[in-house]
Amino acid sequence: MKIAKFAFGLICLTILASNIVTMSRWSEARGVYDDICYLRQAHLFQRLGIGGFNTNTALDDDGYFEGKLKEIAFDEWQDQSRWPCHNPMPGGKLVLQYPPGTGFLLALFPEGRQVAPLYIAASLIVCGLALFGIFMAPTLTSTVGAGLFGALAIYLMINPAKASYSIAPTMAVCALAGFLTALWLIRDKRSVLLLALIGLLLGASVSFRLPNALLVAGYCLFLAGAFTWSRTVSSFVQGLAFGIGVLVGMIPTLVAHAINAGSPFATTYGSVDAIPPGFDLAVLGQYLRDMQFVLIVLAIGSTAWLFFDGKQRARQVALVVAGNLAVNLVFFLSHPIFTPYYIVPITMLSLWTVSFAWLMQAETAREAVVPAGLEALPR
Rank of each mutant, 00 (worst) to 15 (best):
Q316W: 14
A241K: 08
Y33M: 07
G278I: 05
V237E: 14
R30E: 08
F308H: 05
K5G: 08
V369H: 12
L124T: 05
Y64S: 10
T14F: 15
P264I: 09
L247I: 03
G301N: 06
T267G: 01
G31I: 13
L185N: 04
I259Y: 02
P378E: 01
L48H: 02
M23P: 11
W184S: 05
G243T: 09
L329K: 14
L183P: 04
S334F: 04
L215D: 09
C174H: 03
A274Q: 11
V32K: 02
V237I: 15
L351E: 06
S142T: 04
A362K: 10
S230V: 06
L183V: 03
V297Q: 03
F338M: 00
L210Q: 14
L247S: 15
A153E: 10
I198H: 10
A17T: 13
V144H: 07
N212I: 08
Y269S: 13
Q238V: 07
A4L: 02
G67I: 06
G92D: 12
D35N: 03
A322K: 15
A226D: 14
T139I: 10
Q316V: 10
Q292Y: 03
A17L: 11
E111A: 09
F45W: 04
I36C: 01
A121S: 11
S302T: 09
S355D: 11
R47H: 05
G112K: 05
T141L: 08
G301A: 09
A107M: 03
L44H: 08
